[in-house]
């Protein structure tokens, strides 16, 4: 058996085994998971063989259990709820992103898992229900107490909230939906020809004409560069 095939079968075996242990997961999700792993394997974004192996290994693992994932779903949607235009952070797939990051950066594991358990403990104590099934008013009452960290000595509950909030916001704004929400226009071929006039005006700035005169004339960008002997550009 060649090495690549054997890695593939080990990874697929790992996925199947993981699902068998997490028997509570519905079968359809398991198939979807295995399929996703395959799709990811074929997806090309400049990975070295070692990096590909790490990705496969991480995909094959499940860190949060079903209850924790459901709690994350509720929590992420409270941190960034749907509004009239865009869905919630949960709709944008942030819980899955956090699941992956917990495996990718293991230092996150204990604070995240411990924080989620604390949420349930607090909710059970105050309201007699787990956090995910508490009313929205009850959930917010819990969050209000930990969402504004002490500047000098944030408590562990506050640190947990800041971590989950950071991961939620970054997860959302790096998603397709979040980028559209933000309005970022880049990551596409274009021709930079300076800050638009209305933007300069808004910030009370203008270009120095002397400086501009030195800059590229984008209408000539495809003309072959030629210089005189002194280094003056002729084209």
């Amino acid at each position: 058996m060649d090495r690549r095939k054997s890695i593939k079968s080990i990874i697929l075996g790992g996925v199947a085994g993981g699902l068998a242990i997490n028997g509570c997961k519905p079968g359809t999700e398991g198939e979807a998971g295995a399929a996703e792993a395959l799709v990811q394997e074929e997806k090309h974004f400049g990975r070295t063989p070692e990096e590909k192996e790490l990705l496969k290994k991480l995909y094959a693992e499940q860190f949060f259990n079903e209850h924790e994932m459901a709690t994350l779903g509720v929590l992420c949607a409270l941190i960034l709820p749907a509004n009239g235009t865009y869905g919630s952070a949960t709709d944008a797939g942030v819980p899955d992103f956090i699941e992956f990051m917990a495996k990718d950066i293991p230092a996150y594991q204990t604070p995240l898992q411990g924080g989620l358990m604390w949420l349930d403990h607090k909710s059970n104590k105050d309201y007699g229900v787990e956090f995910k099934t508490a009313t929205e008013a009850q959930q917010k009452e819990i969050l209000d107490a930990i969402a504004f960290p002490d500047k000098e000595n944030p408590t562990y509950e506050q640190q947990f909230f800041s971590l989950i909030r950071n991961l939620t916001v970054t997860g959302y704004y790096t998603s397709k939906e979040g980028i559209e929400d933000l309005g970022y226009k880049g990551n596409s071929p274009n021709v930079w020809d300076g800050v638009p006039e209305d933007v300069l005006a808004k910030h009370g700035k203008s270009y120095d004409p002397e400086w501009l005169a030195k800059c590229v004339d984008q209408s000539k960008r495809n003309d072959m560069a030629e210089w005189d002997d002194e280094g003056n550009l002729l084209t």
């Binding site: 090309h44 974004f45 995909y59 990718d104 950066i105 790096t174 596409s188």
Partner: peptide
């Protein structure tokens, strides 16, 4: 080479969204 190319990829094409793990 498209197989090793990273230019113009979106961060959501990576499960770690561009984090510097590796």
């Amino acid at each position: 080479d498209p197989k090793t190319m990273n230019q113009l990829k979106w961060n959501y094409e990576s499960p770690r969204r561009g984090a510097n793990t590796t």
